[in-house]
Computed example of a mutant assay.
Amino acid sequence: MKYDVGIIGSGPAGLSAAIYAKRANLSAVVIEKEYEGTGQIAESGQVDNYPGFPGISGYDLGENFREHAVKLGVSFMEQEVTEIKKEASSDFELVFADGSQVEAKTVIYAAGATPRRANIPGEQEYAGKGVSYCAICDGSFYRGKSVAVLGGGDTALDDAVYLADVAEKVYVIHRRKEFRGAAVTVAKLREKENVIFVLEHQVKEIIGEQKVTGVVLEDAAVIDVNGVFVAYGAVPQTDLLKKFAVLDDSGYVRAGETGETALEGLYVAGDAKTKKLRQVVTAVSDGANAATAVAEYLK
């Protein structure tokens, strides 16, 4: 069977795209690596910034998205796409790890981006229990508390600025003396009384009791914190698209509001797309825009 649109990824962007594609009477298939997956949102212990669902768990919100798509009759395939083929003026061939493939007139790429991990003891254990990768998502949970931000690039500095207006204390822990991020942001942080720089140090372990209680530095010093924000940036999952010359220098897919890329018939939605804010609400919007653009293109 040839589908009108093949949607790669079953996170909020992919599921939103599927819902809008189905409502436009398009034949759509969502291709997911994990069985009944809903993307990284499932790892969030609590989501408090998606309108209409304050305090809902990320797992439950993701399940709501998926259930909506299922009720509309969206098709799902549990497969890993290993290659995307497209010749000039032809349809797409999506090749799977087991050697099988499907054809689609268009593709919405919603494979997302993966946060860079610190890869230290306690990180995985306390993920969603004090360890976070998104200050804008989870910062409000630490109002009046102490947090640590790990990293020295723009992501870490921007997170620290945001958290300084929420938390009682913000420890910026960086392994070097100098920052890779913008000097103007560093200067802004130095003006804030509740920001404490811990430079030329690395966190060797995140400790806690059911939830995070502190971090241990390489010299065995312990800093008491309620939350740890791992802010090393993210890695867009876009290797499949490198041959199509649609990526920017950081590996994100270049596209505007509609998700249309430089390759005819290829659209992008969610965290793999070039944009300022990567949140559930923007991923859902991206999916809706991309599917609407696909419907117009196929007409």
Rank of each mutant, 00 (worst) to 15 (best):
A97E: 14
R117V: 03
S100T: 05
E191R: 15
Y142Q: 01
E123H: 06
K105P: 00
A164N: 13
E34V: 10
A283I: 00
Q46T: 15
E78M: 14
L240K: 14
V166P: 03
D4Y: 01
G233L: 02
G152F: 13
T38L: 00
R176W: 01
V222I: 08
K299T: 06
E125Q: 02
Y126K: 10
A221Y: 07
Y20N: 04
K273D: 14
A156S: 08
G139P: 13
C134F: 08
E257Y: 11
V253N: 07
G208V: 13
G139T: 12
H68Y: 12
G130V: 13
T38H: 02
Y50W: 14
A272H: 09
A231E: 15
V253M: 07
G181A: 02
G153R: 06
M77D: 07
V203Y: 04
G227S: 13
R176P: 04
A231C: 14
I41H: 12
G112Q: 05
N226M: 00
F179D: 09
R117M: 09
N64F: 13
R175I: 06
Q101M: 14
T282A: 07
V147Q: 12
L157K: 06
V195F: 01
Y35E: 07
K169W: 05
D48T: 11
A187Y: 04
K129Q: 05
I7C: 03
T82L: 05
T82D: 03
T238N: 06
G270K: 10
A111L: 00
R254Q: 15
S16R: 08
G130S: 06
E264P: 02
A255K: 13
F96P: 10
G251P: 03
A231W: 05
Y133H: 01
L72M: 14
A17S: 14
A272F: 08
D154R: 01
